[in-house]
């Protein structure tokens, strides 16, 4: 019973934070909103019993990559972008209400026509999200895509250096 409540709570936070990322006029505020978004998504992973992925999300994205973002913003000394013209609150409310209504109608229509998938959502056990379970899959069943992604990251690095560096042999 708790799972849907948590899902909607974290999903709402994630959506609000991503809207904040777009709307913030100050780049630092924008980056901080992005951190909130990443943390909310990490919480969603945790509710799905994907503990390892949730923690990696916090460490890598909310930690390392966001620090890089903030450093870049600091070093480039970005100015706040100009404030948008005031948006009419009533028009905004109209858009929001219209979107909600459209979503509700589409959902009812799709359910009425039987177009929605009809399978049960399987509960995943706590053991599926452990590093051990992940590693067992990653290094046996999915070894080939895993190695391919490794190759992909390598050529992306090589290519970036090759294009960026001036070198006339």
């Amino acid at each position: 019973m708790l799972a849907p409540v948590l899902f909607f709570l974290f999903a709402a936070v994630a959506i609000a934070a991503s809207i904040g990322t777009l709307l913030a006029r100050n780049p630092v505020n924008s980056a901080l909103s992005l951190i909130v978004n990443l943390l909310a998504v990490a919480s969603l992973y945790l509710t799905l019993n994907a503990a390892f992925i949730g923690i990696v999300q916090v460490l890598v994205y909310a930690g390392a990559i966001m620090v890089l973002f903030l450093f870049v913003i600091m070093l480039l000394n970005l100015e706040a972008t100009p404030v948008l013209e005031a948006i009419d609150k009533r028009i905004l409310a109209g858009y929001a209400g219209g979107t909600l209504l459209l979503g509700a109608i589409t959902y009812l229509l799709a359910r009425g026509l039987g177009a929605l998938p009809t399978f049960e959502i399987a509960e995943s056990a706590a053991a599926t999200g452990t590093p051990r379970a992940l590693a067992l899959n990653l290094f046996t069943t999915y070894a080939l895509p895993f190695e391919l992604i490794g190759l992909l990251l390598l050529v992306a690095t090589i290519g970036a250096v090759m294009i960026a560096k001036k070198r006339f042999v």
Binding site: L144, L148, L152, V155, M162
Partner: peptide, 27 residues
Amino acid sequence: GMMALGSAANLLTLFAGLETMSVCLYI
């Protein structure tokens, strides 16, 4: 990447192959 894409039996291999190929071609 192209060989993985062209002989993929799983959507994951297909995607990994496609990206490997595409990134090389962009560069």
